[in-house]
């Protein structure tokens, strides 16, 4: 079998040019941690995918940093989970995202898998999506023909393994808007073992407390629907309330989880997922509002 062409350009221009080139767009490779497992699964039952050109973005310059651009932080397409995990200087609003970083696969995967790759892979159980929804993140996309555009994360991920990325586009960065100085993020992941586990359910949130009250809240849940969901009703239920952990937890009600549509699978039942999401969300909110500001950990 002839190997398909492999490209590892060093400039964005070259990469975008490759995406324009030809009817069959190349598959985009960053950390490889989703691509190779999919290949193994397909080959196991003798259904190898047809060979596709590969665009390896791991040598692209200018995409490997977490930059403070003032109004937002820009997380480049080559930023790995390990880099995010170890970025201790990030504000407390990032705590949830960084907690997720510690729980994406094992250290080997964290060292190579990229945050943006996690979004582009668009698994319903992607650990990066709920924390980034809670951070109000946008995704920056670029194409040679149309330049760059930004999409809110919720508009970028369209469904199970489906995104708004056009065939000639490359996702360049995740942009996380600046949050108030009192904003804190949290993330809780539930699985049946302690490492290397696909979530049964997970929740993430960013809460801003000012003058003893919840001034702003963004909450999201993952692995409970085809795409992780913002929970606007739950947010509304706590904004404006006193930052009293038990009271905030109690304010979140089952009906606030309306956007979730969990399924039965090998990991849990749908009914359990819905219940667990509620428990996790209440704990998350209570933890984020706790006056001792202890880190929220699963």
């Amino acid at each position: 079998m002839a190997a398909a062409p492999y490209h590892r350009p060093e400039t964005l221009e070259a990469a975008l040019a490759l995406l324009q080139d030809g009817a069959a767009p190349p598959i985009i490779l960053a950390g490889g941690t989703d691509l190779y497992p999919a290949q193994a699964a397909a080959e196991a039952w003798m259904c190898p995918a047809p060979a596709r050109r590969v665009l390896d973005i791991s040598a692209l310059s200018g995409l490997d940093g977490i930059e403070d651009r003032g109004e937002h932080h820009r997380i480049g397409a080559r930023v790995t989970w390990a880099a995010l995990r170890d970025a201790t200087h990030l504000p407390a609003a990032f705590d949830g995202l960084r907690a997720a970083a510690r729980q994406v696969g094992g250290a080997q995967v964290q060292n190579r898998a990229t945050v943006l790759g996690n979004l582009c892979n668009a698994s319903p159980a992607a650990d990066g999506v709920p924390p980034l929804l809670a951070l109000g993140a946008e995704v920056e996309l670029a194409s040679a023909a149309r330049g760059t555009r930004r999409l809110p994360l919720a508009a970028f991920i369209l469904g199970n393994r489906r995104t708004a990325l056009a065939p000639d586009e490359l996702a360049l960065a995740v942009l996380v808007p600046r949050h108030g100085p009192g904003a804190r993020g949290g993330f809780l992941k539930l699985g049946a073992r302690s490492h290397l586990v696909i979530s049964i359910a997970m929740v993430a949130g960013v809460i801003e407390v000012a003058a003893g009250r919840v001034a702003a809240a963004r909450l999201a849940a993952g692995a409970c629907s085809a795409v992780a969901q913002r929970l606007l009703a739950a947010e509304a239920a706590i904004v404006g309330r006193a930052a009293d952990p038990p009271a905030l937890a109690a304010a979140i009600l089952p009906r606030h989880l309306g956007p979730l549509s969990p399924i039965d699978d090998v990991r849990a039942t749908a009914a359990y997922r819905r219940e667990a999401a509620l428990v996790l969300l209440r704990r998350l909110v209570a933890g984020l509002a706790a006056p001792d500001r202890a880190r929220v950990a699963a």
């Binding site: 590892r8 950390g31 941690t33 497992p37 590969v54 390990a82 094992g106 080997q108 995967v109 060292n111």
Partner: peptide, 25 residues
């Protein structure tokens, strides 16, 4: 060959990686 077991862990520039998930390129 899926990054699930870590048996193939090696160090790439000092960082642990599943060799089954690292392209030669």
């Amino acid at each position: 060959e899926a990054g699930d077991c870590g048996a193939c862990t090696v160090l790439v520039d000092g960082a642990q990686a599943c060799a089954c998930l690292v392209p030669l390129g």
